[in-house]
């Protein structure tokens, strides 16, 4: 450490800054002792050390403090939860009501269209041949919610599907529950959910898949005759039997298969299938 009259300021500052070790401090003190005219300067450097004015204080610390708001937060949280729950329930209620309204509207709409446009009611005849088990003639009427199953003694199965062309799949309720209700309102007693194995069993008993598809595809292009239509309207309400259920399952399967409509879970929905047949037929008519 070489302190002299040219560099002493840096050492003086380091001295008052307490940046020097004991040896260095001693060197500075020895230098001042040898240069007493600089003693005052060292003291002046020492005087540059500021002292905090304790009288300068932040007066309102209370305004900065945070109160323990756990309970308040919890209360607010609960309020939010309850509010959210209430809104959710409200939305669910409104959604349920709208779905019901949709089903009712669909019902009303289809009935109205049918009444006004009875001429436009179309039918599809689905002939499934080569059946050894099913010897039933099935008339399915969606127009006035009647359908009839009539047993016949021959080996041919004749199924007639009459749907107003105005039914659009968009009008059908989306949910299974709503669709079930929709079907019930229309007295469309059909197999709502048919598992593939059931279909396969029916199909095994009835015909080959390709045969059914071909027949179904052909059948939906066949328009009903006036005579057939009048006959259908006079049908008694639909009642099911084991064979009839099998037929309906087959119809559902056939119509769904023909139109490529298969639900995500592998089941078939007959109401969609029927409506799609109607829709497709309406397109063909146009």
């Amino acid at each position: 450490m070489n302190i002299n009259r040219n560099n002493y300021e840096a050492y003086f500052i380091s001295y008052i800054e307490n940046e020097l070790n004991n040896t260095q401090r001693k060197a500075v003190e020895d230098f001042v002792a040898m240069n007493p005219d600089l003693k005052n300067e060292l003291e002046l450097f020492g005087a540059t050390k500021l002292e905090a004015d304790e009288k300068i204080i932040f007066a309102d610390k209370e305004s900065l403090l945070q109160k323990n708001s756990t309970k308040i937060i919890a209360w607010k949280w609960n309020i939010n939860v309850w509010a959210s729950a209430a809104i959710l329930l409200l939305l669910l209620g409104v959604g349920w009501w709208m779905m019901n309204q949709s089903a009712v509207k669909s019902h009303q709409f289809s009935e109205e269209k049918i009444n006004v446009k009875s001429d436009s009611v179309k039918s599809s005849e689905l002939r499934i041949r080569n059946s050894e088990l099913i010897k039933t003639e099935k008339h399915y009427l969606a127009k006035n919610n009647f359908a009839k199953t009539k047993r016949v003694e021959n080996k041919n199965f004749n199924a007639k599907i009459i749907l107003p062309e105005t039914i659009d799949t968009a009008e059908l309720p989306n949910s299974w529950t709503s669709r079930k209700k929709w079907n019930e309102e229309h007295e469309i007693h059909v197999v709502q959910e048919i598992k593939p194995e059931e279909i396969l069993q029916v199909q095994k008993n009835v015909a080959e898949i390709d045969t059914i598809k071909a027949v179904a595809q052909n059948a939906i292009s066949v328009p009903p005759t006036k005579k057939t239509e009048e006959k259908m309207i006079a049908q008694i309400p639909f009642k099911t039997s084991k064979n009839e259920r099998q037929i309906l399952k087959m119809l559902a399967w056939a119509s769904s298969k023909v139109l490529g409509k298969e639900t995500n879970n592998g089941n078939f929905d007959v109401s969609i299938g029927f409506a799609e047949i109607s829709h497709k037929q309406a397109l063909q008519d146009n």
């Binding site: 300021e9 840096a10 800054e17 540059t48």
Partner: peptide, 14 residues
């Protein structure tokens, strides 16, 4: 900065 500040303060006091 501290070195310069000390110098300035000391000079002012002088």
């Amino acid at each position: 900065y501290i070195f310069r500040a000390r110098q300035s303060l000391k000079n002012y006091l002088v």
